[in-house]
């Protein structure tokens, strides 16, 4: 028996929108402490890790650990039928090959049930090692999205360089080059507007902008984004989901031949 009631149902809608273009099918792993998802994109260059802890749910019941394979495109179609203010409940029964999404309007005058077929998914489970990162940049998520979008109109890849001067995003393409530098800025009215650079050692890495732009679909989930980099390790782009968990995207760097 599985029953999860999320008053802020829009959160689940936003989570799905942030990952559905990267991952087609994925196993959702439910346990008593919350649910998680880990999946690589089809080209095996990026990895998505999602965690939503049980504390964030108004009601959370999971009698035994269970894994449900879902097509994220289909799940997104169903969740789009929920209103932004709706309460969303996920229900499942042991051994069933379906999952039910229930949408309740805030005034309880409309209640909808959507039953979705589950699927068997073979997925390799990867251990994500704890790493000491050379540099961790925390910045407004909207600013990061703007930079990725702007640079993608010039080039295909972004070089992210962190020095004690700041963080530099650079690209080059047929029409020219672009460099955007952000300096550490903690003297802001709201903490979420700050750019904070923690640097142990300077680092410079190259990534495909196509993936970075895909990650920024998670922008509505969080006012800030954290970018953690170490040479030869996948970059971690993390959007924290207030009080509940996170969506993390890992992307392999582009290497010189």
């Amino acid at each position: 028996m599985l029953e999860l009631r999320l008053v802020q149902g829009s959160l689940l809608k936003k989570v799905l929108e942030s990952i559905k273009d990267l991952v087609n099918d994925a196993n959702f792993d439910f346990s008593s402490s919350g649910f998680s998802l880990q999946s690589m994109d089809s080209s095996h260059v990026a990895l998505v890790a999602l965690l939503l802890k049980s504390e964030g749910f108004e009601h959370y019941r999971c009698d035994r650990n269970t894994s449900m394979g879902m097509n994220l495109g289909n799940m997104s179609k169903m969740l789009k039928c929920a209103g932004n203010d709706d309460i969303i409940t996920i229900k499942g029964d042991d051994g069933s090959d379906t999952v039910t999404f229930m949408f309740e309007s805030p005034t309880q005058d409309k209640i909808a049930d959507f039953e979705m077929k589950l699927m068997d998914i073979d997925s390799e489970h990867l251990g994500i090692p704890e790493a000491e990162y050379h540099a961790i940049v925390k910045m407004p998520s909207a600013e990061f999205a703007r930079i990725c979008k702007d640079l993608a109109s010039i080039g295909d890849t972004v070089v992210i360089s962190v020095t004690k001067e700041g963080v530099k995003f650079s690209t080059r393409g047929d029409i020219g080059t672009a460099n955007i530098v952000l300096r550490q800025n903690t003297t802001v009215d709201k903490p979420e507007d700050a750019t904070v650079i923690e640097m142990n050692e300077p680092v410079s890495m190259t990534f495909a902008l196509r993936y970075m732009n895909s990650f920024t679909k998670a922008t509505p989930l969080s006012n800030t984004v954290t970018i953690s980099m170490s040479p030869d390790l996948p970059v971690v782009v993390e959007y924290k989901i207030a009080e509940m968990g996170y969506v993390r995207f890992y992307l392999a760097p582009k290497m010189e031949e």
């Binding site: 690589m40 095996h44 260059v45 990026a46 990895l47 390799e124 489970h125 990867l126 251990g127 994500i128 090692p129 190259t206 495909a208 030869d232 390790l233 996948p234 890992y250 992307l251 392999a252 760097p253 582009k254 290497m255 010189e256 031949e257």
Partner: peptide
């Protein structure tokens, strides 16, 4: 340039 396979950065679990 080539994209480094992301698996190199992770441990494959059974």
């Amino acid at each position: 340039s080539r994209i480094q396979h992301i698996l190199e950065g992770f441990y494959l679990l059974d």
